[in-house]
């Protein structure tokens, strides 16, 4: 599982808030997972208000929030089979 920048990503939402990001995931996806801040995914530590919502789309695509200090939270779509398997194995189903 590589770094998110190297794997490539699609931006679903930009300049959003942590709350909107979580609500979007819970509204638009069915295969939802939760992690705590500091969870390591795609070589980045997850930043956010716990619990942080993630989703798996199809078999191999991870939907995750990514927060930058000046630009707020982005919701990203990253296609990576290893990353999706890692989320399934290490994240929890309930908040």
């Amino acid at each position: 599982m590589g770094c998110v920048q190297n794997l490539g990503y699609e931006v679903i939402l930009e300049y959003t808030s942590f709350k909107e990001s979580r609500e979007y995931i819970e509204k638009h996806y069915s295969d939802i997972y939760y992690v705590d801040p500091g969870f390591l995914l795609f070589e980045k530590r997850m930043i956010g208000v716990p619990p942080i919502a993630l989703a798996i789309e199809g078999e191999d695509t991870v939907i995750l929030p990514y927060t930058k200090p000046c630009f707020g939270t982005y919701l990203l779509r990253v296609q990576d089979e290893e990353g999706a398997a890692y989320v399934r194995a290490n994240a929890r189903r309930k908040p």
Partner: peptide
Amino acid sequence: HNDAGISFASTIRFL
């Protein structure tokens, strides 16, 4: 001073 700051502070509090 912004929403991202809430996310970072919450992360720090957790850790």
